[in-house]
């Protein structure tokens, strides 16, 4: 018989490799068998015989490697989530995730982009609501790491700008900045985990975290609700004067703004008329 067309062969091979079970199960699966019948594989018409491994065992090297490789890659971005779920729980999560969100990008650093949203609706996952938020924090860190290059705005170069002009200033934030509002104290869990002294999964409690890159490092900063509101307003394009009004009476808004600027959270400013 003639060799199968290359495209057919690749579709069949991919079906075996990415199958969430093992290669022998995959070979018998109707969608895979419809491409190249299992019987044809068994007759040695597709793969050259190997005295030490049968066809399924050779294919299993690729099938097993696929999940192991992608689990390892996602573990790099989602180490705290993996810690909460345990090795088996995390591997099962990744297998379910890949079935719905296989990699479609040349770069592995994009693979986990949909994981927090997937977790949020992954029925039956232990501590699901907390783990979804924890995943969101870890994704924010990964995104901050990979965000495009930027040059932070040096606010002190505007020494001659009058205070009232500042009130009308609108800022553009740096592309690494992400503002997160959680229903759990996520960073209070994440930080000790990162330091090697993990704590128990916490009870719900509202929290706010900013994640950004500064000096080529990723930073997490816990915010009060007011700080979160002020910075969210600025990031949303509101003029400084209006954004600062989101704070409570008597809060040190000028200091906050100076620390935002010193952390390089803005890349440009426009002064109103």
């Amino acid at each position: 018989m003639s060799a199968p067309e290359l495209r057919l062969l690749q579709r069949w091979f991919a079906g075996v490799v990415e199958h969430p079970s093992t290669a022998d199960v995959a070979l018998a699966e109707s969608a895979v068998d419809a491409l190249i019948p299992e019987a044809q594989v068994a007759r040695g018409e597709i793969l050259a015989p190997n005295p030490r491994l049968d066809a399924a065992a050779m294919l299993q090297i690729y099938n097993g490697g696929y999940l192991a490789r992608l689990v390892e890659a996602l573990q790099g971005d989602y180490g705290a989530v993996a810690h909460v779920l345990g090795a088996d729980g995390f591997q099962d999560l990744v297998a379910r995730y890949l079935a719905e969100f296989p990699s479609r990008h040349p770069n592995l650093n994009r693979l986990g982009r949909c994981l927090p949203a997937f977790i949020a609706r992954d029925d039956g996952l232990p501590h699901r609501a907390f783990v979804a938020e924890l995943a969101e924090l870890e994704l924010a860190c990964a995104r901050a790491f990979d965000a495009p290059e930027f040059e932070p705005l040096a606010v002190d170069q505007f020494g001659d700008v009058a205070p009232e002009q500042w009130m009308s200033a609108r800022f553009t934030s740096n592309p690494s900045l992400q503002l997160l509002a959680f229903e759990h104290p996520v960073d209070e869990f994440y930080q000790p985990w990162k330091e090697g002294s993990p704590v128990d999964v916490p009870e719900p409690l509202s929290s706010h975290v900013a994640v950004f890159r500064k000096d080529e490092r990723v930073w997490r900063q816990r915010f009060t609700p007011s700080m979160h509101a002020v910075l969210s307003a600025l990031v949303g394009g509101q003029p400084l004067g209006e954004a600062l009004a989101a704070a409570e009476e008597g809060e040190p808004v000028a200091e906050w703004f100076q620390s935002f600027a010193a952390d390089g959270l803005f890349v440009s400013v426009e002064f109103g008329a």
Binding site: L6, R7, Q10, V17, G65, Y66, P102, S103, H105
Partner: peptide, 15 residues
Amino acid sequence: TGVEGKNLHDLLPLP
């Protein structure tokens, strides 16, 4: 490394 838009992130053999 992949087909039908998917990347399997492995160096897969050619006939």
